[in-house]
Simulated scan of single mutants.
Amino acid sequence: MTPLRTKATPTAMTIPTPEAPCATPDAPVFTPGLLQLIWLASPALPVGGFSYSEVLEAAVEWAGVATETVASDWIADQLQLTQARGDLAVLAQAIAAARAGDGARLQALDAWVRQTRESAELRLQTEQMGRSLADWLRGLHPDRAALLAGWQPSYPVAFAVSTAHTHASVADICAAFAFGWAENMVASAIKSVPLGQSAGQRILARLAAAIPAAVAQAMALGDEDRQALSPMLAILSARHETQYSRLFRS
């Protein structure tokens, strides 16, 4: 009978060392900054994004956002109206300012972000998330936070400073920011509407397909072209501040 196992001769095994890392002819080559962008766009980053629905919760109660289709349309519209025309455009310009070491320009862009927040809760959101991300950067990479000495940035500006040291393109950084925002909005919709996980993935697929065009639009905008006019968002945000029962801070 053939034995199940014979006494084996030890096989050769290559153990990676600092001098000889796991390098093979077909080893993957990563896009510069890719892992940093994944890290910064992750919902696990301790900036508190999960606690905000950006008015979606109020839209469920007062604007008829009660189905997957309507929720998908609502979030897709928000991508175009507030992200592509406002925050993403600021982010693109702030990355250039951070890489140039232009603190005055960063503060001017930051002031614009705050002025576009038409309710107290939306302003507090960008301030809290920006402060948390800046604190994270100061704790992990204090040298990279030098541009933030003496002031606290809004979230888009903090994200720009946090990614400026990478070799990632402006387009990739903006896409990572937008996808992180989209993931958070979908998670909010799943809880608020409510929706199933599969519905959430369908909405996220739609947003992912729309993000490249939104980023291209944002990068083409100058200072005089940025805007964040979204009256219904502002009205519902003001109502959300006193909503009887809610899960989210905004």
Score class of each variant (00 low, 15 high):
W136V: 09
L148E: 01
A168T: 01
R105T: 15
I235T: 14
V90K: 01
D77C: 06
H240E: 12
R99G: 04
E224I: 02
Q36K: 12
L195Q: 09
N184A: 04
T67Y: 05
Q107C: 11
T24V: 13
K191R: 15
I95A: 00
P194Q: 04
L56Q: 02
A208N: 09
L207H: 03
A228G: 08
V215Q: 00
G101V: 01
D143C: 04
A59Y: 05
P46F: 10
E61W: 11
A111V: 09
L133I: 09
S237K: 01
E68N: 09
P10H: 10
S154G: 08
A8E: 07
A66R: 14
I235H: 14
L109V: 10
S162C: 08
V113P: 08
E127K: 04
W74C: 07
A23L: 15
L81A: 15
V65D: 01
A59C: 10
A92N: 03
A187I: 01
Q217D: 05
Q243L: 15
R206S: 10
M1A: 15
V70E: 04
G49L: 06
L79D: 00
A100N: 11
S132N: 14
A96W: 05
L147I: 11
A134C: 07
D77M: 11
L124V: 05
P194F: 02
A216H: 03
G103W: 05
D87R: 15
T67H: 06
Q201G: 14
A71M: 05
H167R: 15
P28D: 05
W39H: 15
A218E: 01
L221W: 00
W136K: 06
P43K: 09
A182P: 00
L147Q: 02
V60T: 09
D73E: 13
R239D: 08
G103H: 04
S162R: 01
L4N: 09
L88N: 06
A238F: 09
A94G: 08
V193G: 04
W181V: 00
R202G: 07
A209V: 02
Q36Y: 06
M232L: 12
Q243R: 15
A209I: 01
P32Y: 11
S250E: 15
A171F: 10
W74G: 00
V170R: 00
F179K: 01
V161I: 13
T163G: 03
I38E: 15
R123F: 08
M1D: 15
T17S: 10
R239W: 13
T69D: 06
Q107S: 09
A41K: 01
S237Q: 03
P16Q: 08
R202V: 14
R114V: 14
Q197G: 07
E54M: 05
T163V: 06
A12L: 12
W39F: 15
L4E: 11
A97D: 05
I190D: 01
G49Y: 02
